[in-house]
Structure formats: structure tokens, C-alpha cells
Amino acid sequence: MIEVNIVGTGNVAWHLAKALGSQNQAILMQVAGRSIEKLENFNNIARETVSIDHLKPADVTIIAVSDDAIESFSEQIPFDNSLVVHTSGFTAMSTLSRKHNKGVFYPLQSFSKEDTSIDFTEIPILIEAEDPKDEKTLKTLAAIISNNVQVINSKQRRQLHLAAVFANNFTNHCYTIAQELCDVHGVPFDTLYPLIQKTTEKALQQGPKNSQTGPAKRDDKQVIDQQIKLLTDPDHTAVYKNITKAITHFYGKEL
């Protein structure tokens, strides 16, 4: 039975705690954080919620905090020579304090506490460790909650995180722009739902390169120019122009 601590009370910590608390092959011993109010959310999941200075050693201590706080929290952990990992897709494993055995336990997914539909068994967990024994421990722990466990190095993980920013964050911002355009002109945004669903479906089935359509792919300059004139927000215009240029260049045409 693997004993686990979680440091952090944010979205990743919450979903990890729920996943670990819903099985019987690992024990979520403690969740540590700075906010008593946020820690209360974990009272029914972990055996104990504590401030970080009262944290006790476990087989694995998972730091699930923002990237810029990882180093500070790893220094605050009040014990040495234990396996401590972070959940960041981009931060180097070496950021963790030298007093710990270091590792990475990165669930590649976008998390929000409001999302109750997340199935952790489908989420890739990407792991890395300095020591082969620790890597084995992390693989065992990850396999308890996920059916997709991969060992990758820091360079690969950083590139995957970068790819995820394009696939998730930038795409979602384009949805936000689309919704703003619909709202301003009184058009229901949900009219686009079938298109959004089909776009994702085709990208997964055919590959994104093979499923690209639209005026930029066709290099339809007349439509492109007219649509640019319809945009009144300079940021929206910049996004439209830059993505259009990228698409036309990718498919071998010049604006």
C-alpha cells in the first residue's frame, strides 16, 4: 500500500485527491496547504489536513501548486531524503529542493474544480524520477488511477506541455473570441456546437493537418479581407491575421 501526501489545494490537487481517495491500493495520508478554508474541502478525502510545517513523511509527496511556487514549497517540506514530486508539465525536475529524492508526476489534462466529469483512468500520467526505484514507485502509483502511464524525460515533457498549450489553451481562447462575436451580434453561440464537435472529431480521426478547411486553407483573399474589415477589436484582428498567415504558409501559399 503506497502512502501519499499532497501539497496544494488547487484544481490539480483536488482532482488528484479525489482519484486517490476513491481506490484502495494507495492511502492519501495528508493534504497540506496554507488556507484553512480550502483545506476543509479535503477533510472527507484525506486522513488528515495540515499546514505544511506539520507534514509527515510518506512514500510519495506530490506538490500540486503553481509553477512559480514549486521551489518554495519543496524547501518548506519539513523532512529530507523522501520522494517528492511535482505535477508541472513545464517546470524542470531540478527545481525541487536538493534535500529530496526528486520526481515528476504530471497528469496531462486541463482541470477545474467545477468539472465533475473527469475520468482519471483516461488521463495520461507522465512520470520522471532521478532514481530507478523511485521511477518504479511512481509507475505503480500512477497505474492505480490511470490506464495511460508513460515515462518521459524533461525535454519531452516540456515539448508535450507546449503542444498542449496550442491544442487546449489557444484553441479555447479562439472559442472565447467566437462567443464574443456571437454575443455582440445576437447570434446564439450554441449554433457553433456541432461545428466545434465535428472539428475535434475530424482532427482525432483524420489528423489535424488533413482536416483543415476554410478561407485561409483556400487562400480566398476576398473573403479574408472582408472578414478582417468586420472585426472591430484590434486583438481579434491580430489573432485572425496571424493564424491566417500561419495556415496559408503551412499549406504553401502566400497572402
Rank of each mutant, 00 (worst) to 15 (best):
N81M: 05
H185P: 00
A92H: 09
L83N: 04
I52K: 07
L16I: 07
Q206P: 02
I123D: 06
P215C: 08
I144K: 06
H86S: 05
L55M: 11
I247R: 03
D53T: 04
G10L: 09
G207F: 07
K209M: 10
G207I: 03
H86V: 03
R218F: 10
A64K: 09
G207R: 09
T121Q: 14
P215A: 13
V149N: 11
I52Y: 12
F111H: 04
L160T: 00
S146N: 09
D68R: 07
A163C: 14
D115C: 08
D59H: 13
L83Q: 08
R34W: 09
Q30H: 10
N41C: 00
S112R: 07
P208W: 14
S74W: 11
K102E: 10
N172L: 12
L204N: 10
E114V: 08
A46R: 04
P132E: 07
V60D: 02
E40C: 01
T237S: 12
S211H: 07
H185D: 03
E114A: 14
N81F: 04
I52H: 03
A92K: 13
L28D: 06
G21M: 07
M29I: 08
L28V: 11
A129W: 00
V31L: 03
L162V: 12
A19N: 02
L55C: 04
L192E: 04
D233K: 08
D67M: 09
N101V: 08
A64P: 11
D131H: 15
I243V: 15
L20P: 01
E122T: 14
A92P: 01
V60Q: 00
D220N: 12
Q222V: 13
T200C: 05
R98K: 15
S35H: 06
A64L: 06
E114L: 02
I45R: 10
F111A: 10
K38A: 06
V84K: 05
Y240K: 03
D80P: 01
S88W: 09
K198W: 00
A58R: 02
T9Q: 11
L195K: 04
E135A: 14
K245C: 06
N44S: 15
E75K: 14
E3G: 13
C182V: 00
I45V: 13
N172A: 09
Y106A: 09
S146L: 05
F79L: 12
L28M: 09
Y240G: 01
V151L: 13
D235S: 07
E71S: 14
F79W: 05
A129Q: 08
A129G: 10
L39R: 05
L230D: 00
R47K: 15
D190K: 12
D115S: 12
D183H: 03
S154P: 01
T9S: 13
A163L: 04
E3D: 12
E37A: 14
V151F: 11
Q109S: 11
T248W: 04
R47T: 05
E40I: 07
